[in-house]
Structure formats: C-alpha cells, structure tokens
Design a protein around this nucleic acid. Structure first.
Length: 258
DNA sequence: ATGGCGTGTTTCACACGA
C-alpha cells in the first residue's frame, strides 16, 4: 500500500495537476494539505469520478486537509481537528482508518515571524500533536502521521542553513519538538531511507528558488513502530515542481507491506 | 532592509504563506 502526502496550495487552482498526479502515480491513499476550501466547496465529486473517495476538514480561504482513498470505500474518520484547544479554529488535522492503518493528515502551523503569537501557536500545536501521537503509541495502533510539518529537522535538510537561520522552520524550539516525537518512538521514513539529506520537498515560488535548487525538506511521514517494520520504500515526486501551475511543495510517499 | 511569487478573499488591495 502506498500512502502519499501533497501540500497542494489551493485545491481549486491545483485541480488539473492533482488529477494528473493521481492518474499517473495512483496512490492508495493521498493526504492533502492547504486545500484552502470550505467544506461546501471541496470538489469531492470530482475525486469520486476519478476513482477516489474522500473526507476533508475545510476552512474558507486558508489551511484545510483531506484524505483520499482509492476505490469505492470512504476513509473511516476517527478525528477531525487536533484535540486540546477549544479556541483553535484552524483546520489542520484529520485522522482516519484506511485498510487497517491509522492515517493522520496534518498541516502544522508555519510559525513565522519569530518571536510572536504565531510561533507560540506553532509550539503549542506541536505539544498537542505529541499528546495525541503518544496516545496512538500507547494503543499500539499501526499509524502514520503524514503531511506538512513546517519543520526542517536538520541542517542537511536545507539548501542553506545560514539563509534560513531566523526562520520558524528551523528554530531550536521547532526542532526540539520534532525530535521529541522521534525519541518517543516515531520513525522519520524518508530520512531512514535517505540519510544523507538533500531530499527537498519545497521550493519557494520567489527568487528563482526552483531553478537554483534552493529547497528544503518539511513534508514528513512519521511511522509508529509496527508500521515502520512494514516499510518497503519512500520517495518524493520531484518532477511535479517543474510543471505548469505547480504547487510550491511536491508529493512525498511511503510504500508499506500489506 | 525589502521584496521577490502565488492563491485566496475582504478583489483592482490585502492577508498569508515558508
């Protein structure tokens, strides 16, 4: 089973690229972030027409996540919204069971500028995420927490640590929160298979970042111990960044034994 | 130090992203 994640930066604007990617790579599960769509305007029918059933947690204009499953079965929703803060109105989290695997699709807050309330929100969100992920570990559920983490884990994951030094994506507090998850027992699937780094998943639209290969790795798949045992392969679909009307992120994927 | 590009809505200007 192949589980993919794609920050699409607007489902409406990305629909041609997205349908093309589903047709060409046929992931069994596709987790989407930044759909930037309300629940009412999300194109669920269009995905059904090309062989996918979907659940989503939308929000007008910003954020928003979705889980697509290939075939006629709809992902079995477990949670919508990250628990732990009733005041949090952002749509950044959806959790579902798909073919016996718990799939958690996340769009973690960016956190810029540092310092400030947005950075505080990011760190608080990561704390709440750790609480939920610990529950999954304790229940020994085969799980993958996949999506846009907005964290550059190590210097090998960015084209220039110096250029990005003041960014929320690689502050020590952001990295510490990420590595607490790793130390809890989660496996960074892409890092496991590509330990030397250089696996960018994002290139900015600005300043010719794609042409200069000024990218970094912020889209991750964290596997619970029992799912990590079943990991076969990982990768990123880099070529989609070079196509017309591309997202600034590329898809990342994991392949696990059935 | 700033803006650069792209997508969205509050649309011919601004918020937000990373």
């Amino acid at each position: 089973m192949r589980i993919a994640s794609f920050n699409i930066n607007g489902v409406k604007a990305r629909m041609p690229r997205l349908l093309e990617w589903l047709d060409e790579t046929k992931p069994d599960v596709a987790c989407l972030q930044e759909i930037k769509s309300s629940d009412e305007t999300f194109p669920g029918d269009a995905f059904h027409e090309v062989g996918y059933r979907a659940i989503w947690h939308g929000q007008k204009g910003f954020n928003g996540v979705a889980v697509l499953q290939r075939g006629e079965e709809t992902p079995h929703e477990v949670l919508r919204g990250l628990p732990g803060d009733d005041e949090d109105t952002h749509s950044r989290y959806i959790e579902a069971d798909v073919n016996g695997v718990r799939v958690v699709c996340i769009y973690l807050p960016n956190g810029n500028p540092v310092p400030g309330p947005k950075f505080d929100y990011k760190l608080n969100w990561m704390q709440r995420l750790r609480t939920r992920m610990t529950e999954l570990l304790e229940a020994e559920i085969p799980a993958v927490v996949i999506g846009d983490y907005n964290v550059i884990p190590e210097d090998k994951d960015v084209w220039s640590p110096k250029a990005m030094a003041s960014d929320a994506l690689m502050q020590p507090e952001s990295r510490d929160a990420y590595f607490r998850l790793i130390h809890d027992g989660w496996t960074d699937a892409i890092d496991l298979h590509h330990p030397r780094g250089g696996m960018w998943t994002f290139w900015d639209y600005q300043a010719g970042a794609w042409q200069r290969d000024h990218g970094f790795r912020i889209d991750h798949a964290l596997l619970s111990p029992t799912l990590a045992d079943r990991l076969i392969a990982t990768g990123i679909d880099k070529e989609y960044r070079g196509r017309e009307k591309a997202s600034d992120h590329v898809p990342v994927w994991i392949e696990i034994k059935d």
